[in-house]
Design a binder for these strands. Structure first.
Lengths: 249, 249
DNA sequence: TGGTTGCAAATGTGATCTCATATTGTGATC
DNA sequence: GATCACAATATGAGATCACATTTGCAACCA
């Protein structure tokens, strides 16, 4: 993953080429989701419709639709004035969120384990190897990205079209808070749970996979809570942050 | 609940009165959600942006935003042409959906039981009494509505702001299919599980509440599967149905 | 100096318009 | 009579506009 400056402008058709229907919206949605997941938008930050549209080089129209979807997915919340902002998660809601994560992702992990294939194990092992490398290099952004890829690859293997959107909604909710909070202390990254998950998959031990997946989630929750203030994550230098990220997913 | 013909027109301010911000959208959203829950929209039916807007007496704009949200909540799916339609649920997805229901709603029921109050039990008992009356009168529409109120009242008591939206998303997904399928046979309505839930609440037995809540869901799933074809619910007379419903929720 | 009021910029909402595309209906052809 | 092509219509996406409300800021008063 290259952390090069994003070209937020919507890719236009080169010269008289076809442009797919709903192309702008799709791009805007990816941009927003990626931004939320990678910490480009801070908890509490209000998103201006017009500014976002200007940043993307489009009219406010597609952005409105995208923001609506994100509000519906609880990734954003609307203020009394109709604006939307990134939710600030207090400890109690963080606990709620991660309790549901344990339930839902534990279920997905168990389902995935029951239909595991050598190909899946190989892919997960490869991702985890990259993750270990990123950890070794203290490359936090890649740690987060690869950790997400590991989990989602596993959950996708469950084959449930119902579970995935729900899990994605949860990740979008805690994403901004997590990605910001992990910048404060030097997070002691640890992929040992992932190794246990891989072992469980190889042994076709669904219960073991579920157990360590839940353990991984619980560990993450504790880490987040240890740095989360009562009013959610607060960063004195938050405003100074301006993440640059790319949109390839 | 009165099943009078809905006045789909957006309520306008009487005479120079204040009109709340986002009033039209809110009305449209309620209209759509209600319609999905009460079987006004059939699985497979495509929703035309302009027709819906015309029916509501507004411009397509608010409707677009509402449809976006419903798509994000997986209550609607978009066709290749960009239109949206009510999803048709096959048996496998129905199973998926109800497996997640068991997990999520079982969790909510358990949480609710742990913080149950006499007031909650009284309210649930009252709703269930109405439900029994509706069953006795073979008032299917009220059965569905009251059954929903029973479950949601229970889940709300869990106090989880994370769980509720997810559960609502699930209900919106199977709502149309369920409300249509229950019109085919004379469904043997049975609220005995609800009685067990009430007993469990009174005895502060969270495990019992969860157990019977899951049992209730599983029973519903079996009933749905028994009438669902391989391509989702099919009704020869589907097109002839035109439900009239009111929007008070 | 602290709180309040008033004005101006910014913002979201809803409507209207254009355009490219998808859908549908009709007619010609095999 | 069925199929395919083409035209007419319908539809969604995106842009632009108008307006009421909210927000932010600054001047002003206590």
């Amino acid at each position: 993953m290259r952390n090069e400056k994003i070209d937020s402008t919507v890719p236009r058709p080169k010269n008289g080429e076809k442009l797919p229907r709903g192309h702008v919206q799709e791009h805007a949605l990816r941009y927003m989701r990626r931004g939320l997941m990678v910490g480009a938008f801070l908890p509490g930050q209000v998103m201006s419709l017009r500014k976002l549209a200007a940043g993307l080089g489009t009219s406010p129209m597609p952005v409105r639709e995208v923001l609506s979807r994100l509000v519906a997915a609880n990734a954003l919340e609307e203020t009394k004035g109709g604006s939307v902002r990134v939710p600030r998660l207090g400890p109690e809601k963080l606990n709620d969120l991660f309790a549901v994560r344990e339930t839902l992702e534990g279920m997905a992990a168990e389902m995935a384990a029951k239909k595991s294939t050598p190909a899946l194990v190989a892919e997960l092992a490869a991702v985890n190897k990259q993750l270990l490398t990123a950890i070794g290099k203290r490359d936090i952004l890649n740690c987060l990205s690869l950790n997400q890829r590991f989990h989602f690859t596993l959950y996708e293997a469950s084959g449930s079209e119902v579970l995935m959107p729900l899990i994605e909604s949860l990740w979008l909710q805690f994403g901004p808070t997590m990605y910001i909070s992990l910048l404060i202390p030097s997070m002691p990254w640890n992929a040992s749970d992932h190794e246990e998950i891989l072992t469980g998959l190889k042994e076709n031990n669904a219960a073991m996979v579920k157990k360590w997946c839940v353990h991984d989630i619980r560990t993450t929750c504790k880490a987040l809570l240890s740095v989360a203030g009562s009013q959610g994550i607060e960063l004195p230098f938050a405003r100074a942050l301006e993440w640059q990220f790319d949109t390839d997913n």
